[in-house]
Write a protein that binds this DNA or RNA. Structure first.
Lengths: 210, 210
DNA sequence: TCTGTTTTTTAGTGATCGTTATGGAAATCC
DNA sequence: GGATTTCCATAACGATCACTAAAAAACAGA
């Protein structure tokens, strides 16, 4: 992002990246508003004043943790663009989500889906930031579908927007089921079923695109 | 449920059902833990002591509001059982959800999806109660799909569980998109696309089952 | 009217919320 | 070794959290 000012004075006694990662995991598990600063300081191993000088406030800390969770948007955009077809990209998106939501060393579900699903009016801007990430993914996938239509990979009557929306809905819906205790295997089976909604895919045709 | 004891004493000054409905709308909009009792008393037009004598505590009030939102489980079970096919039931489930999540006079999204998506460990039992409702719907739909398989309405290789899970995932995922601002029209289009994953349905075949 | 029962209002409980002032310890610069 | 700069630990800020004690108020039956 921007180079640290690197001035004189006492150096930080904690690893900022490691602390941020712990904050991310805590937000992932408990949500944004339902995670207290006390929980954060305990998980991060950092006192409250240190947290505030290093990250600003709770909201900025969450936004930074959210960006750490989501990764570089350019990476995802590249994955979608480079995939052989939009179908491959959609499958990759959903299977990766299913794996992420059921990791052994991480909280269940999706940080984006859980963190701000509920929230008071005071957290509206945080909800917008999360929604922006979703919209970015959906937009990226829709554009890729439209490209496939233009390239005659998909039939011309294909509805790009609802198809991209479905992928997002299944993804975020899987987060809910993962939180309820659904296994990775069951989520992956759902992904395979969902992909049968893709134009040109049906039943055993799936083997062709895997 | 159980007949009121109908004893002597000062009568209630407020309509309990109307107050419960306002509580439901407030929980629907802001979630369980992120709704304060102060917000509830303001929305319900009831003082805190009255709220506690009438509903117990915040948790019991939420559970009652949740049951009001979800309706009688028997009604849903009956709808699924009475539907011509499991496909009809699935379509009804998803289109009704899309309509509910984008109502003009109600909060956006699904109370079940939003209220406990995030939450501290203290609200674990509330999360379980919400998850139980989802599991009930999913189970009911899965049984209906298995019945259609047995009745040769669906092909024998149909995977009932992932198919039912997909319907739930799309439903709960639509809640997220509705909260992000998706229109009812776009959600309904996604439902139509999702239903193409159903065995035996593809493209224009949909007209046959509508 | 009097008694008993229940709900109301008023005011407040201790706990926790996010956040910060303060004072001193620690590390770099000259 | 100062001088300077930065960070850490302690403690506390006002606000809000879920919740309730106490007493007045409104009903039913006598």
């Amino acid at each position: 992002m921007h180079a640290p000012p690197r001035r004189t004075g006492r150096p930080l006694s904690f690893d900022r990246d490691a602390a941020l990662r712990q904050a991310m995991l805590t937000f992932w598990r408990h949500g944004y508003e339902t995670t207290s600063v006390a929980e954060l300081t305990a998980a991060m191993g950092v006192s409250a004043p240190s947290l505030y000088t290093a990250f600003g406030d709770k909201k900025q800390l969450f936004l930074e943790a959210m960006r750490l969770y989501a990764g570089d948007p350019a990476d995802l955009e590249r994955m979608i663009a480079v995939a052989p077809t939009a179908l491959h990209a959609a499958r990759e998106l959903m299977t990766a989500a299913a794996a992420t939501y059921t990791g052994e060393a991480t909280p269940r579900g999706c940080l984006l889906a859980s963190a701000t699903a509920s929230g008071s009016a005071a957290a509206a801007d945080v909800q917008h930031a999360v929604a922006d990430i979703r919209r970015g993914i959906e937009c990226c996938l829709r554009v890729r579908i439209e490209r496939d239509i233009k390239d005659s990979v998909l039939p011309p009557e294909t509805q790009a927007a609802p198809l991209a929306g479905l992928v997002l809905a299944v993804t975020q819906g899987m987060s809910v089921l993962a939180r309820d205790g659904a296994s990775r295997t069951s989520l992956l089976a759902m992904v395979e079923v969902a992909l049968r909604a893709w134009p040109g895919v049906k039943a055993d045709d799936q083997a062709l695109v895997r």
